[in-house]
Each structure stands twice: as C-alpha cells, then as structure tokens.
C-alpha cells in the first residue's frame, strides 16, 4: 500500500513539466527515503534524477519498496487537471497495475480521482558516483534560462568556461558568435539574485544547447540553479524542489573529434 499526500500539489505539477519533454516513460520508485525517479532521455545523452523526500509529504505511507512505471506525458495530462492550490495524494496498491491521483481543493469542496494505468518499463539504473567538481556556479535560474534561450538562437552548442574572471557561456553559428560572461556578485539585496562562482580548477566544456534548454523547464521550481562542472564528468544542473528534494540533470559533454 502506498499513500503520499502532498499539500503543495503544484510542486508535483511543476516537476512533471520539468521532465516530461526529456523522458517519455520512467519508473517512479517509492521507499522509506522518498519518491524518486532516475531516467535517461532516449539518446542516453542526458539523465534526470528526482528525489522528493518522505519528510516533505504531509502523509507518507510506503509499506514496501514499489516501482511504478508511468508514461510521463499521460501523467502530466492527469496532473494538469489538478488546481494549483490543490492537495495531491498518490495512491497505489502493492502489485496493482494502476495508480490513483486524488486532487482536493483547499476548501475541500471538490475532490477528484484520476486513475492511470501503470506500465512495465525495463530501465537501467545507473550508479552516480559522488564527485568533487572543478567548478560550481550558483546563479538565478531565470538568468540561466535566458542565457540558454538567447544562445540557442545563434548556435547549437554552448561552451561553458569557468576561470578566475568568471563564468563564460559561448556559442557559434552560421550568423556569428556570442559570448556571455557573468562575474561573481554577492552584493545583492536578495540572496537568490547572487552569482556565486566556486572555482577549484578552471574548466571548459561543450554541451548541446537543446538539452540545456530542456533542463530550464524546471525554472519555475526554484529561484536558483547550481551548475557543477568537471572536465572528466557530465555537467550537473540542479534545481531544488522547495525544502523537500531536487531535480538533477546530468548531461554528457561534447568531446573532441
């Protein structure tokens, strides 16, 4: 038996909007730790890792570990039927082939049940090693979204370089080139507006902008985004999900031919 009650149901709606264009089908895993997902895009270039910790739910019952295969497009269709202020409860029976989403309006005058068919998904679970990153950049998520959008009108690859001068986002295309440099700025009124650059070693890596743009669908979840870079590893683009967890996107770099 599984029953997860999330008072801030809009978080789950936003989570789905953040991953449904990257991944078609995925297994949601439920354990005493929380509600989680790990999935790759169909090209196996990007990986998304979601965790919503059990403590973040008002009620969290998961009698035994359960993996539920869902089509994210269909799940998104159902969650779009929930109001932004609704409380969302996810319910499933052990061994069952459906999951139920229950939406309660804040005043309890409307209660809706949506039952969705589960599917068998044979997915590979990858071990993600803990890593020390060469450089970590924290910046406003809206600024990162703007940069990715702007650069993708010029080119299809972004080079992200971190030096002691700051972080540089560069691209090149048929019509020309673009460089955007951000310097560390912590003298801001609101902490979420800060640009914090932690550089242990300079690093420069190339990534497909198409994926970066897809990751920025998570912008409504968090005011800030953290970008962790190491020359030997996929970049990690992380958005916190309120106080209860995170969405981390891993993107394999483009390498020299």
């Amino acid at each position: 038996m599984l029953e997860l009650r999330l008072v801030q149901g809009s978080l789950l709606k936003k989570v789905l909007e953040s991953i449904k264009d990257l991944v078609n089908d995925a297994n949601f895993d439920c354990s005493s730790t929380g509600f989680s997902l790990q999935a790759m895009d169909s090209s196996h270039v990007a990986l998304v890792s979601l965790l919503l910790r059990s403590e973040g739910f008002e009620h969290y019952r998961c009698d035994r570990n359960l993996s539920m295969g869902m089509n994210l497009g269909n799940m998104s269709k159902m969650l779009k039927c929930a109001g932004n202020d609704d409380i969302i409860t996810i319910k499933a029976d052990d061994g069952g082939d459906t999951v139920t989403f229950m939406f309660e309006s804040p005043t309890q005058d409307k209660i809706a049940d949506f039952e969705m068919k589960l599917m068998d998904i044979d997915s590979e679970h990858l071990g993600i090693p803990d890593a020390e990153y060469h450089s970590i950049v924290r910046m406003p998520s809206s600024e990162f979204q703007r940069i990715c959008k702007d650069l993708s009108t010029i080119g299809d690859t972004v080079v992200i370089s971190v030096t002691k001068e700051g972080v540089k986002f560069s691209t090149a295309g048929d019509i020309g080139t673009a460089n955007i440099v951000l310097r560390q700025n912590t003298t801001v009124d609101k902490p979420e507006d800060a640009i914090v650059i932690e550089m242990n070693e300079p690093v420069s890596l190339s990534f497909a902008l198409r994926y970066m743009n897809s990751f920025t669908k998570a912008t409504p979840l968090s005011d800030t985004v953290t970008i962790s870079l190491s020359s030997e590893l996929p970049v990690v683009v992380e958005y916190k999900v309120a106080e209860m967890g995170y969405i981390r996107y891993y993107l394999a770099p483009k390498i020299e031919e």
Binding site: S43, V45, A46, H125, L126, A252, K254
Partner: peptide
Amino acid sequence: MGLQSRISEYFNGD
C-alpha cells in the same frame, strides 16, 4: 563542434 558522448561512458549500471 565535437562528438556527443553518452552518459553510460561516465556512469555504470548498478
């Protein structure tokens, strides 16, 4: 501009 690498080149299956 470079060859696209894959996630499995960096992370192993459990």
